[in-house]
Design a protein around this nucleic acid. Structure first.
Length: 236
DNA sequence: ATATCGATTATCT
DNA sequence: GATAATCGATATG
């Protein structure tokens, strides 16, 4: 019997078989009981390491009994006070306070008068650093994400636009500063977290960061190459 | 398919 | 008062 591949258009079948072997589920798209919430130690490192390791993990939002899940396919590292492109570059302020706090907390900021962007803090308490989430591949709760975005997902193209780009993924997950900024993503009580379901990307690629003017040459964007949910790409 | 441009506001100078 | 870690609509090839 051929494996069910819906929802994982770019995932090799071999990997799907391995994932299912552990979960005893018929459909890989379903929420796996093996989702392990990432702990503090995961984030207590430099943003480059956290960025690389976040690829392939799953962002999870719990809304009552409804779960939203999407795989991380694109992130960017922002290094803190030594990084001219980082919000922390000019020192600690009211806005960027979370970046200077303990690791594993949500940093949410507003951009271009329109969009929320979602980050997680890295490095020990007192040292700024973070990772910006730029693109996700939807796994679970797609109709709820579509409703949050105010769009339909009748076509392949519309599905891609659900969680491609930092503003879109934040909207799909209902992420706002009021609701989520400063939230401890490692707390069992948090309704927003990152999880490991055993998936490991075959390859990771780095490029320059998108949309910045300072330190524009540093290769701090991390992607799963070939994934169709990456931002800044043509739509077939 | 690619390019350009307007929207809209928190934050900092 | 200028800028920004973006998006979506519109115009043009």
């Amino acid at each position: 019997m051929a494996p069910e591949r819906r929802g994982f258009p770019t995932t090799p079948p071999r990997r799907l078989v391995m994932m299912r072997a552990g979960s005893h589920r018929l459909h890989v798209n379903r929420h796996s009981p093996m989702l392990q919430r990432l702990k503090r130690d995961f984030y207590d490192r430099d943003p480059q390491s956290v960025s690389r390791e976040l690829l392939g993990k799953v962002l999870v939002r719990r809304e009552g009994t409804q779960l939203l899940e999407a795989r991380v396919v694109e992130v960017e590292a922002y290094l803190g006070e030594g990084d001219p492109a980082a919000h922390a570059a000019a020192g600690r302020t009211a806005r960027n306070d979370v970046l200077f706090g303990p690791p594993g907390h949500a940093y949410v900021y507003f951009i271009y008068g329109n969009h929320w962007c979602f980050n997680v803090s890295c490095l020990p308490d007192g040292i700024a650093g973070g990772v910006l989430f730029r693109a996700l591949e939807p796994v679970e709760g797609i109709p709820v994400m579509a409703r949050a975005r105010g769009v339909s997902v009748k076509t392949d193209r519309e599905l891609r636009l659900l969680t491609t780009g930092p503003g879109r993924l934040a909207e799909a997950f209902g992420i706002t500063r009021e609701r989520d900024n400063g939230k401890d993503l490692t707390s069992p009580k948090s309704d927003l977290w990152l999880a490991d379901d055993g998936f490991r990307p075959e390859r990771v690629a780095t490029t320059v960061r998108i949309g910045i003017t300072k330190a524009a040459e540093m290769p701090l964007r991390y992607v799963i190459p070939g994934n169709r949910f990456l931002s800044g790409q043509k739509i077939g």
